[in-house]
Design a protein around this nucleic acid. Sequence first.
RNA 1: GGAAGCGUAGCUCAGCAGGUUAGAGCGCUGCGUUCACAUCGCAGAGGUCGUGGGUUCGAGUCCCUCCGCUUCCACCA
Length: 905
Amino acid sequence: MRKELEKKYNPSDFEDRLYEEWNEKGYFLPSRPGAKPFTVVMPPPNITGQLHMGHALDNTLQDIVVRYRRMCGFNTLWVPGTDHASIATEAKIVEAMRKEGVTKEQIGRDGFLERAWEWNRVYGGRITEQLKKIGSSCDWTRKRFTMDEGCSRAVRKVFVDLYSKGLIYRGNRMVNWCPVCRTSISDAEVEYEEKDGHFWHLLYTVQETGEKLELATTRPETMLGDTAVAIHEDDPRYKHLHGCHVILPLLNKVIPIVCDEHADMTKGTGVVKITPAHDPNDFEVGQRHNLPMVRCFTYDGRMTGAADRAAAEEAAARRTSDASEPEVLDCGKYAGLTTAEARKVILKDLEEGGYLKNVEPLKHDVGTCYRCHSTIEPMVSRQWFVRMEPLAGPAIDAVKNGDLHFIPDRFSKNYLHWMENIRDWCISRQLWWGHRIPAFYCDDCGETTVTEEDSAVCPKCGKPMRQDPDTLDTWFSSALWPFSTLGWPDETEDLKTFYPTSVLITGYDIITFWVSRMIFSGYAHMGEKPFDDVLVHGLVRDALGRKMSKSLGNGIDPLEVISQYGCDALRFTLVNGNSPGNDMRVSDERFEASRNFANKIWNAARFVLMNLDTDCDPDAIDPSGFADEDKWVLSIFNRVVKEVRENMDKYELGVAVGKLYDFIWDVFCDWYIELVKSRLYDKGTESNLKAQKVLTYVLSNTMKLLHPFMPFITEEIWRSLPHAGDSIMISDYPVPNDAFDFPAQEAAMRKVIDAIRAVRNVRAERNIPHSRKAHLRIVTHEPESFAGKEAFFLRLADAAGVEIVTGGECPPGAIRAITDVCEIQIPLADVVDVAQEAARLNKELAAASGEAERASAKLSNASFVEKAPEKLVSAEREKLAAAKAKIQKIEEALARLSEIQQGES
RNA sequence: GGAAGCGUAGCUCAGCAGGUUAGAGCGCUGCGUUCACAUCGCAGAGGUCGUGGGUUCGAGUCCCUCCGCUUCCACCA
């Protein structure tokens, strides 16, 4: 069934309609059982999210790859889903509640979770609906959520498995604490920002000798938690102090001087204060020297007080803490102050006591929370960790031995560096929204039980147990995404068919957060890699190269772009000229250019349709006996098919779509359509029918090639052309055909096109209007190249008539357009200015001579002729010959000009 | 401190298994509109491919130096 195309290209007329139809007809589902599978799992957007350009890029790339593979005959599956995003979502809900004047504590855990699920119900679907707007051909019947029943079972099973293998443990370790989110976060979630700070030089008195030891700190408020100062064993300045003590100012507490390699003799005074509970390095020093840990900050960023100390003591009595727990300090007069307030008061007190020597300004990197950007407080805290070293091994080998590739490859370097220096992963979060840690504690006997079941009774003593209140890092569940979405831990058909997945497409910003964790999880739980390839893309930036952000207000809403320019234009913009791993800029100008391209395609298709009066077979054509221009376009088209497939297979999507752009605009529209117009207007002839066949064949198949990139316009046009089947998206991707290679016709048409361009060129230089037609005299030694092509010159070179000759008299006052195979004489006596004409010819002569010199220099180089491939050498010879021929023609023309000049004078 | 990327036309970027006279889009200049498309056509101007070396018959493409910009990782008492 064919339908007309509207006169005006208006994407909103059909984009939504087509998407809905594809989805309803099940075209997004894997449909070729038994065929080789091709699987992609979608990086799950957060349920807090609105579709932004990053999603648009990520999903456009995935959709292109998926549509391509589907058309190539793979049993293709693209699994969509969403991520519960524990910390981000919880923060949003807390913020919403704050506006209502409600706190988490007031509504309690159950009440809060109710709200969170409600949030998911309301907003979780929003982003997936938006993904449909950009044409994502994913299988919505398999849509998953990181906290759905299946994913939750996967999480529990993984936790229990790792725990039973000793790869998950709980302990008091230094963690990054966000006092605003009030939770620990992993190392990967800390972002370092350069901030202005100070170096405060403090003086601690040595108890044994009475001398003052100078040391410096950027965080003076931590001094209350100092339990030692460190010097280097070999530091000559302090040899006499080995084994001595200092008196901690303000607290008047005696703490030891220890010798530790951490103290760097070359830095400052070589003395460093040790706060094991609030500094990662000091924690290590504390472990080495068995120093007590003293915690002086609360989890909400204040100084600890008597109540905090009492609570800790009570916990210890209840056996809910262990020996590695830090002691909690009652900070006395500082208790309850925020750490920032405490810093001021403590500095004032130190100064008054004569303990502050001086202050110097300092720029330093401060760790901040990647979600809320508050300053991170390092704190010793009891958390759950994944022991990473054993898990990292296979994940490192996989990339090293080429089982799994990053595209572009340079990202494997980042990845390997991170994996090879891996540290244990802090997975517990003091949040409510997320997968609750499946660990249960018996307060009575102190037993810890880790189990997949909800367990209420202690297996050891039969007393009631309570579940760990914490939840898991949101990335813990997304790490399992490639197999949890396919049904694991059940042994489903999907899992058997579609795992490992084929390619993961994501931005370089989450390689460490997510990609690396999926890789080791795949090996750990499936015994196999999660995907063959990782296609890495860059960030989308604004026209000025800035990261799009809410605070800058420079974000471009993809949905706005779609409504203004159409989805196909958005997609084209995001992929055209983009290379893997590189950031890109988008702007209205670029969207507009893409829309113009779509409009060009639309109008070309309209033109073809207007001139079709027969149903040609778009899928097969036998070009024997066809005109040179037909073979010319088919030959170029065939090469495009070959190259585009190669590019697509190598994920060179930007290159592939660029070739299609050039072919459609420059070859098909600007030349082929123009070349066949006269045949099309000459109805009822064999030649006319052949032109229709070629137009239909090339346009229809070009739409298929372009379909993965611009799914909507290609479908709309394909359907309006003669076609077999219901949808272009389930048709076969074009395959190259050697029978369509026509080098001779390509060369022949090249000569004609060169000649037409030469004529246009000289006419344009003279500003001769198109209405001023001229009789062309083509002088050439190979008249066969132009025979039968006169009509092209009439239509495309403003010719009133064409004469092909091998010599003879030039009409007086003709302008000469010269190519390497012919001279075209254009008799326009009144516009000929002999001097101007000579200047133009001399310019062309210079260009041709330059080329001849270049080629002849190359050919006279014996090494080149000897070592370069024969193909290149002969190509160079041909170029030289062509340049020489052209030079000769120009020189003859110049000679005749000077005759005229002499005649005039 | 370690690593990576980028530097090509006025602007934004492609190109690089080394081999046409280095490309595109936008912008710019001139001409052009009944006959698919002004969301257009034709023609044109504009680049010693950051610098200096090296390898090679041949380098924008490979190697090294330096300069400029950006990013990641680590550390910074």
